[in-house]
Amino acid sequence: MTTIHDESEASARRFAARAVDDGLVDIAYTTLDTPIGPFLAAATARGLVRLAFRTEDSGEVLDDLAHRLSPRVLEAPTRLESVRRQLDEYFEGRRRQFDLTLDWSLTTGFRRRVLRTTARIPYGEVSTYGRVAARAGNGRAARAAGSALGSNPIPIVVPCHRVVRTGGNLGGYGGGLDVKEWLLRLEGALL
């Protein structure tokens, strides 16, 4: 026998699908499984706006999106199908470049320029904090570039893992240094 609980869950699922169809969802999100743990992925009508490692609390990530962009946040995996597929291909080593539109609205100014510069570092290569800072318009702001990369709202796709310290030290990484190392090995930038 179905219960009120089951029926209300079924109704809630139908509602979420309809809300997407009616264009009422400003931020769609889902959870993705990857070899480096689950990710929360969120997209606006403009494009992918956020990828969060499991090191971040997903409730807090969603709160932040609700406050900064729009509270019309719903779980809607269908809206993130191409993100899921391309990340799967990337982690299987079958994709070297992402073909996704990005929504940069969570960053501004120098930080955004640093991230846009970083987005152009090719697969399998690395750059340094100083070089990225210079390309973003301020060669002496290596430390600020590091902090911009630390707040990267779309890691992996904006490959901040490809930025290391001058001299080869890996520097830091929001998802953990072991993950940074794992990604650079996957891409063949580290042996």
Partner: peptide, 18 residues
């Protein structure tokens, strides 16, 4: 400070449906 709408759905769907 409005919570993400999904949280309302998760928390209150059963109350509304009931």
């Amino acid at each position: 400070a409005l919570p993400p709408f999904q949280r309302l759905l998760d928390t209150y769907a059963e109350d509304v449906y009931g």
